[in-house]
Design a protein around this nucleic acid. Structure first.
Length: 903
RNA sequence: GCCCGAGUGGCGGAAUGGUAGACGCGAUGGACUCAAAAUCCAUUGUCCCUUAAAGACGUGUGGGUUCGAUUCCCACCUCGGGCACCA
């Protein structure tokens, strides 16, 4: 029989489906292992070969763990709410649900062809009401909770009310006042803050959805706007999110990204007296450099700070108003661009009083100070802060150096080193000591206190969009009131048009009311549905709970999570927050959701180019292009083989090339190439379906892993796939020769057993380290060796099929059944490694003289270093290389090398 | 600017202190064939050389540690990623 991957793959894929081979069932008698992929957003473009990279890696790991006796949970689903489907609906009028369903079906068929071991009975879709019921439920729990700083965890809001009652702060408040009070404490709360507003998308965005001042989706400009929005009090968890990062088995770079995003900084808050038109008032600033307080020459408020109206002198009002108005209109991008000399600001007309020197200093307003960080007000030390320095230079404010010997004529001295001067009681101290002493001083004087600040902000949780989870909240006489849990899920209502009209789409829904009161018209953001999906997979059909304590107690948390780095500051922060919240309330048993995380690299495209001579329709081969003035044009990689252009196909590709002429090199047109992002516009997209059609799923799986380490980005180049194709054919031929099944019940030779055991040892080690490319190399070597040994023994070939099955499940399943087994190879026992064959081994030691290799010596692996040394000293060749010199020492590294040091 | 990560043949990559370039692609030569495909065999870092033996050089650059460095340390260069008025 020949290796016919098409029929083999189709046959076993349906066999697996029929036999429910990959169904996971809780079984307390077996150890569990939970392997999770980041579920995809089902986009209209379908999958390209880069997408399944992580899925293949995790599938190999799942199958391997299963062979090692673990009860593996390996689910898949869809992150199905999101902007693109809605944008598409706006353009075409098609309901997002419809396009999403179509896209999901396409994703599913593409995934199915690759032969993943997913338990599809556990599939989740975030847009399914049965699923988003639990997203809404979690929101209600967050609404009904507060963060208790004493116990350092979230607790029911009723406990807070009890506390207020005891303190006499509750009774006598009106309903509205009670609601307003609690709103300041709820984990999910509604609050007025400065938010990222994207006009083009008609919605607010969270911090991680904005990059370089534009929206991540679409790249539209973003402005700061004060708005009342639903938010999640993620900031309450900042220190816990930071601290428990230590315990996670994630890459250092990813942890570092999260640390940066959380942005802990230690400093102090200091009170400054201010005077504005004769009115005195205290304000608080935050600084990490209390030691520089003698160098303060002015203060700055953020334009959005609520202190601005209070500290604007009547005489300066007009100017300040003008500045505030201009600042409001700027996009984030414009604000970020105005660094250094372009810095802007306006004098408020009021003054602060330095609490240490008693000196009066002007208060300015500038948007280089952020409202959302610290207190929105700073003390400016231009000599030792580059931003303050730029501002002082621009507006001609004094600069007083307070560190000995520093030169501030050209730039500020920001480093935390040197000896203090011009600083009263701090003089002569080292900067680090001065910081501590100054903190002690302000605390003792009662004018300040130590304070840790975090950059991490609360997450803006509402979106003025349609295609998301509705908030289970209605407004009873203007008071935000949760829907009773029994009303969940609150289903997304039908609307007649998706076109933006300036109001939230749900405001146009008919009867969007509860008991006659209006329901919230915002919907939840994309990260809502993805924050707890890993919990839902544990118990996906439960109507009573997000996850039952039994299911959660068994599967606990994700043992291995595979996905891209792009979620480092979004999903992976929100999920950890969400999980910690549920943990605080006792709904889940683990504090962290993802124990080990592997970031797969990107698969880049390999683009091809043709070179058109400017002003003509003549194309010159890349090998000759330097003698012409050419334009580089992307050409579809399907028209190119081995970098040689198919001229006829190229002419037929697009009408403008129909009469193209060519300058060939040696009869061939050689295309240029480059590694770029895989995308339609670069004509370098490779579709996994095509690869499955032409080479088979097992080949695709092996090749993606063989390309290089999973974590690394690497280019896809289809021409390299032949090596893997040849390997699989060779592997097949160990079992089958035309019509004859070669496997016999003969005794294997020691040489054959050695090949097998070497492979078992290598695979065990490599899979645990995600070093799949080297495992596959080891397979290629082993199969080559077995072929030349003429292996037919069942004792070798049966375990061999098991070993390869995580990588190439279809072909191994076929062979496993050909060997006479009834059940799936997935349930085969992992081949035992027989230590005897390793002990029996011979090691060929290279013998070096002063680091230079001269000859080799064969020794049994079990030989002691002393025995090896003795054997080498008495070797006939040794004398020749010693040649009259003295042997200083002999270094024997067991199993590796012998080095003889001569002098 | 700050913080991570990476630089190895024509290409993807292997080796985390011990024979640098495993394995694969590509390339060259050969076998089989009327021929092609497929398959198999051999060669394939650079230099010197007719060839071979032998040798020298060689993991971004320059230093250092070591009997021995792609691997560890210091400085620099280049590329990739993240953060960036966070006081």
């Amino acid at each position: 029989m020949d290796y016919d991957f098409k029929s083999i793959e189709a046959k076993w894929q349906s066999w697996w489906a029929e036999h429910k081979t990959y169904r996971a069932v809780e079984d307390p008698s077996r150890p569990k292992f939970y392997v999770l992929d980041m579920f995809p957003y089902p986009s209209g473009a379908g999958l390209h070969v880069g997408h399944p990279l992580g899925y293949i890696a995790s599938d190999i790991f799942s199958r391997y763990k299963r062979l090692r006796g673990f009860n593996v949970l390996h689910p898949m689903g869809y992150d199905a709410f999101g902007l693109p489907a809605e944008q598409y609906a706006i353009q075409t009028g098609q309901h997002p649900e419809k396009t999403t369903t179509v896209n999901i079906a396409r994703y599913r068929s593409q995934l199915d062809r690759i032969g993943f071991s997913y338990d599809w009975e556990r599939e989740v879709r975030t847009c399914d009401p049965a699923y988003y019921k639990w997203t809404q439920w979690a929101f209600l729990k967050m609404f009904d909770s507060w963060y208790d700083p004493v116990q350092d965890k979230a607790r029911p809001i009723s406990k807070l009310i009890e506390k207020f009652k005891k303190e006499g702060r509750w009774d006598g408040l009106s309903e509205q006042e009670q609601s307003d009070l609690l709103m300041q404490y709820r984990i999910a709360y509604q609050g007025e803050t400065s938010v990222n507003w994207c006009e083009e998308l008609g919605t607010v965005l969270a911090n991680d959805e904005v990059k370089d001042g534009v929206s991540v989706r679409g790249g539209f400009p973003v402005v700061q706007k004060k708005m009342k929005q639903w938010q999640l009090r993620v900031s309450a968890y900042a220190s816990r999110l930071l601290d428990s990062l230590e315990s996670l088995d994630w890459s250092d770079s990813l942890k570092e990204m999260q640390r940066n995003w959380i942005g802990r900084s230690e400093g102090a808050e200091v009170e400054f007296d201010t005077v504005c038109d004769g009115v005195h008032r205290q304000i608080t600033i935050f600084t990490t450099r209390v030691d520089t307080i003698f160098g303060v020459t002015f203060m700055v408020l953020a334009p959005e700070s609520e202190l601005v109206p209070q500290l604007t002198a009547a005489a300066n009002k007009a100017e300040v108003e003008e500045y505030l108005a201009a600042s409001r209109k700027k996009t984030e991008r414009e604000r970020m661009a105005q660094t250094g000399k372009n810095v802007t600001g306006v004098f408020s007309g009021s003054y602060g009083i330095n609490p240490l020197t008693g000196e009066q200093i002007p208060i300015w307003i500038s948007d280089y100070v952020l409202a959302g960080y610290g207190t929105g007000a700073i003390m400016a030390v231009p000599a030792h802060d580059s931003r303050d320095y730029a501002f002082a230079r621009k507006f001609d404010l004094p600069i007083i150096p307070i560190i000995e010997g520093c030169d501030v004529s050209e730039e500020s001295f920001d480093a935390k080193e040197g000896k203090m001067c011009n600083s009263g009681f701090l003089n002569g101290l080292d900067v680090k000591e001065a910081i501590e002493k100054a903190k002690d001083y302000v605390e003792a004087k009662g004018i300040g206190r130590r304070k840790v600040n975090y950059r991490l902000r609360d997450a803006i949780f509402s979106r003025q969009r349609y295609w998301g989870e509705p908030f289970p909240v209605y407004y009873k006489d203007g008071i935000a009131t949760p829907l009773p849990e029994s009303e969940l899920p609150l289903c997304l209502p039908a609307i007649d048009s998706f076109k933006p009209t300036g109001e939230a789409p749900l405001a146009r829904a008919k009867d969007w009311t509860y008991e006659g009161y209006p329901i919230e018209t915002s919907t939840m953001p994309g990260f809502a549905g993805s924050s707890a999906y890993y919990l839902r997979y544990m118990d996906p059909h439960n109507d009573e709970a997000l996850v039952s304590p039994e299911a959660n107690g068994y599967w606990r948390s994700v043992d291995l999570y595979v996905g891209g780095t792009e979620h480092a500051t979004g999903h992976l922060i929100y999920s950890r927050f969400w999980n910690k919240f549920l943990y605080d309330l006792g709904y889940v048993c683990e504090d962290e959701p993802f124990r080990k995380l592997v970031n797969q690299g990107m698969i880049q495209g390999r683009s091809n180019f043709v070179y058109r001579i400017k002003g003509t329709n003549t194309f010159v081969s890349s090998t000759l292009k330097d003698s012409y003035d050419t334009t580089e044009i992307h050409v579809d990689i399907s028209l190119v083989h081995n970098d040689r252009l198919d001229l006829e196909a190229f002419k037929a590709w697009r009408p403008e090339f129909a009469d193209a002429e060519f300058i060939l090199d040696d009869g061939e047109y050689v295309c240029g190439w480059a590694v770029e992002k895989m995308s339609k516009s670069m004509y370098n997209v490779v579709n996994p379906d095509e690869v499955c059609d032409n080479y088979g799923a097992d080949t695709l799986r092996l090749y993606e892993m063989f390309l290089g380490p999973v974590e690394q980005s690497k280019p896809w180049d289809t021409k390299g796939i032949d090596g893997v194709v040849r390997f699989l054919r060779k592997f097949w031929r160990l079992y089958w020769d035309r019509e004859e099944f070669l496997v016999k019940d003969t005794e294997p030779s020691p040489a054959e057993l050695k090949v097998l055991h070497k492979l078992i040892a290598k695979e065990q080690e490599d899979i645990e380290n995600f070093s799949y490319n080297t495992t596959i190399s080891a397979f290629m070597i082993a199969v080559g060796e077995l072929a030349s040994l003429g292996t037919v023994s069942r004792a070798i070939l049966e375990p061999l099929a098991v070993l390869l099955c995580p990588f190439a499940p279809h072909v191994c399943e076929e062979l496993w059944h050909a060997l006479g087994h009834e059940g799936s190879v997935c349930d085969a026992p992992w081949p035992e490694y027989v230590a005897a064959y390793a002990a029996d081994d011979t090691v060929t030691y290279p013998v070096q003289f002063n680091g230079k290799m001269r000859f080799t010596v064969d020794m049994p692996r079990s030989a002691s270093p002393a025995e090896v040394e003795a054997a080498v000293r008495s070797n006939a060749q040794t004398d020749k290389y010693v040649a009259g010199m003295n042997i200083v020492k002999v270094i024997v590294v067991p199993g590796r090398i012998i080095n003889i040091v001569l002098k």
